[in-house]
Simulated scan of single mutants.
Amino acid sequence: MNLGVAYAFGQLGLHRIQAETVPENTASQKVLQRNGFTQYGLAPRYLKIDGQWRDHVMFQLLRDDAA
């Protein structure tokens, strides 16, 4: 995760990294939170997975917040 964040902010010059998980994927949510991502919303029916529209919890990491 650290290499990906460093690449996104350093090499690509991005201002923001965004990630989403299905609500029951708490393991991925913990990984994101441990790496500085903050939860900022819920996207209803965000992606169609196995034929069903699934809600997703939304996370972000801003360049200014990454240390």
Score class of each variant (00 low, 15 high):
1 M>S: 04
3 L>V: 09
4 G>L: 12
5 V>P: 01
6 A>K: 13
9 F>M: 09
9 F>A: 04
10 G>Q: 11
10 G>V: 06
11 Q>K: 15
11 Q>P: 13
12 L>F: 05
16 R>M: 12
16 R>T: 08
17 I>D: 01
18 Q>S: 09
19 A>Y: 08
21 T>W: 04
21 T>D: 06
21 T>Q: 02
22 V>K: 02
23 P>H: 11
24 E>S: 12
25 N>T: 00
25 N>Q: 02
25 N>G: 01
27 A>L: 10
27 A>N: 07
28 S>G: 01
30 K>E: 01
32 L>K: 05
33 Q>R: 00
33 Q>V: 00
34 R>N: 15
37 F>P: 01
37 F>N: 00
38 T>L: 08
38 T>S: 08
38 T>F: 07
38 T>A: 05
39 Q>A: 14
42 L>D: 08
42 L>T: 15
42 L>A: 10
42 L>Y: 11
43 A>L: 15
45 R>S: 11
45 R>N: 09
46 Y>S: 10
46 Y>A: 11
47 L>Q: 15
48 K>N: 14
48 K>R: 15
49 I>A: 00
51 G>N: 09
53 W>M: 04
53 W>T: 02
54 R>P: 01
54 R>I: 08
56 H>D: 08
57 V>E: 05
58 M>G: 03
60 Q>F: 05
61 L>D: 03
64 D>T: 11
65 D>S: 12
65 D>L: 04
67 A>H: 14
67 A>E: 15
67 A>L: 15
67 A>C: 12
